[in-house]
Design a protein around this nucleic acid. Structure first.
Length: 262
DNA sequence: GCCGTCAAATAGAAGG
DNA sequence: CCTTCTATTTGACGGC
């Protein structure tokens, strides 16, 4: 006996007796699902690659098992289209269902219990979000649109946020968070660039400073070497007398007299 | 809205 | 070719 509980994110929770289990439950796909992914989402590099590697494990004897994975007999694209809830875009950027198990193993059984005890209608996207942090990867298309939007305005007003969220099949909160992160990372990069610039500026100023100090030193040396000659040239001796330019003292031989007194 | 932080997803290197 | 380890990217969250 097998009871399947599916939800609109194309999760398949399966309780029963199985003689096959997937190596990785979240990649529990049959051949035609794999083809679907390869055809529809070639740009999603990860899935086809992993699907080639991961396969079902045959058990020696049937065991009671609880499987949580993508629906076997459901075409995720068609399912979503039928339900008119989320487009292909949101299917591709789906949540990783292994997140909870990885984050806290103790929580995983509780999660499964919760899912089992609820009907299909109870399990919607928002509720799966709750409980633990989920990691979603935006598609290239979604990222592109967000980037373009960010180029125009780095902040969003509530209306723009709503519109963007709707067109990308994301929650407004996700768009908001994306913009927050984008702003923060832009700032970090800008700071890095400015820091690099300041560093170069500092280096240039330091070498300039050294050069100028050296120049001053050389000028001082030149001054002390050449000043006496210049001094005598500027104030040629009249007879045996010379005049000091600063104090106007006339030096004659070894004696000095003030010119004012003469 | 910003900031610091966490943690999943991913890429790439290293080793067998 | 596969696994393991490490670094980076990025979606999400809580506090302010």
């Amino acid at each position: 006996m097998v009871n399947d509980v599916s939800c609109i994110t194309s999760l398949n929770l399966s309780l029963g007796v199985h003689d096959f289990i997937p190596r990785n439950h979240r990649l529990d796909l049959q051949e035609h699902d794999r083809d679907q992914y390869q055809d529809q989402y070639q740009y999603q590099y990860q899935y086809p690659k992993q699907l080639e590697k991961k396969s079902m494990i045959k058990l020696d004897q049937p065991l009671p098992s609880l499987l949580l994975g993508l629906g076997r007999d459901q075409d995720p694209v068609n399912l979503i289209d039928q339900q008119n809830s989320y487009s292909i875009v949101s299917v591709v950027s789906s949540f990783s269902n292994s997140t909870c198990a990885k984050r806290g193993r103790d929580d995983s059984s509780e999660e499964v219990d919760k899912l089992l005890s609820r009907s299909i209608s109870d399990i919607d996207r928002d509720e799966i979000d709750g409980g633990c942090r989920k990691k979603l990867r935006l598609t290239k298309e979604q990222s592109f649109v967000l980037e373009e939007s960010f180029k125009q305005h780095s902040t969003l007003n509530p209306k723009e946020k709503q519109t963007l969220a709707k067109s990308l099949n994301l929650r407004p909160r996700q768009v908001e968070v994306w913009f927050q992160n984008r702003r923060a990372r832009t700032k970090v990069k800008q700071n890095e660039v400015e820091c690099e610039l300041l560093k170069k500026c500092f280096e240039a100023l330091t070498s300039d400073n050294i050069r100028l100090k050296r120049e001053i030193q050389q000028l001082k040396e030149i001054k002390t070497r050449t000043l006496p000659t210049q001094f005598y040239m500027r104030f040629p001796a009249t007879g045996s007398h010379t005049m000091c330019p600063s104090c106007e003292t006339i030096i004659s031989g070894g004696t000095a007299k003030s010119s004012k007194t003469l």
